[in-house]
């Protein structure tokens, strides 16, 4: 039983992926032992009509094997009326969280609208996933070069929002120096392993990150799902750590119910 917190539905615009059709994606997750996948959509990264993208995402997740896919809708605080997208994700689609792609959506983390979005997500008890990188900048399409996200403003934002649950996706290659430590000290932040590299990478990372802040993420289907699985084999980990990374941390995170102060109708999906 594995909870994969970094899966994508719909189509990557620059090439077809072997498992970019819903049935094949679901089958691959199933045979690889993934029993729950937190799914965003590539449409939510590249489309302007995020309301439509999120509705399709929610519908696809409902149509799939029961309980396999948990939708994480996209919200772009640089777009008009983004608060309505947030409301729909939470209230209409009953999503457990949202997925943000600041670099693809064209805003920096010092944008006041981003801070407001975090505040509103915290009040609603939504998990916030933030994609720091989707693709190695060295190999991007020449007409669409997207930089890594500068996460520098995050610690201050986290300190001010102690009930916010933040999951950083694809962040490990770009967090230099003591950036991980500063984030961990600032708030409830989690990391996933899809872009973790280096021999024995998971074990090495555990010297810097408490095991309860580490999640299994594959970046599938853009990445080969087996990559994240094999990383757990490469590092010599006690069974309790494997259980924590592959499922227990994610389940605890999803079931956590921060004290709501907004009168929101629900915090669980």
């Amino acid at each position: 039983m594995i909870v994969d917190v970094n899966v994508h539905l719909s189509r990557w615009p620059f090439r077809r992926l072997p498992c970019d059709e819903l049935s094949r994606l679901a089958e691959k997750l199933h045979v690889c032992g993934v029993t729950e996948a937190w799914a965003g959509s590539f449409d939510g990264v590249f489309h302007k009509d995020l309301g439509g993208a999120n509705a399709r995402l929610a519908d696809d997740c409902r149509r799939c094997r029961p309980g396999l896919l948990r939708p994480f809708g996209s919200v772009n605080p640089a777009f008009p009326d983004w608060r309505e997208d947030l409301r729909r994700c939470h209230e209409d689609h009953r999503m457990p969280g949202i997925r943000l792609c600041p670099a693809y959506h064209g805003y920096r983390l010092d944008n006041p609208a981003f801070a407001e979005l975090l505040t509103l997500a915290e009040r609603r008890g939504l998990i916030v996933q933030l994609a720091a990188r989707l693709e190695d900048p060295r190999v991007q399409h020449p007409l669409m070069r997207v930089p890594d996200v500068d996460v520098g403003p995050l610690p201050e934002l986290l300190v001010a929002r102690p009930r916010l649950r933040l999951v950083l996706l694809g962040a490990l290659p770009i967090l230099r120096g003591d950036a991980i430590t500063r984030l961990l000290r600032a708030g409830e932040v989690y990391f996933e392993i899809s872009m973790l590299e280096g021999v024995g990478g998971v074990a090495n990372l555990l010297a810097r990150v408490p095991v309860d802040r580490l999640l299994f993420g594959s970046h599938f289907p853009l990445f080969v799902l087996e990559s994240a699985l094999l990383k757990l084999q490469e590092s010599e980990l006690p069974p309790a750590q494997v259980r924590a990374i592959t499922r227990e941390n994610a389940r605890r995170l999803r079931r956590a119910r921060p004290a709501a102060d907004s009168g929101i109708r629900h915090a669980e999906a």
Binding site: I2, P18, C19, R24, E27, K28, H30, V31, C32, G33, L225, E226, L229, L230, L232, Q233, S235, E236, L237, P238, P239, V242, T246
Partner: peptide
């Protein structure tokens, strides 16, 4: 090693569906 076997037990279920 037993630890290796435990970790590896995650993976054998993963069979390419395609």
């Amino acid at each position: 090693g037993a630890k290796a076997a435990v970790a590896a037990s995650l993976v054998p279920r993963c069979r390419p569906a395609i």
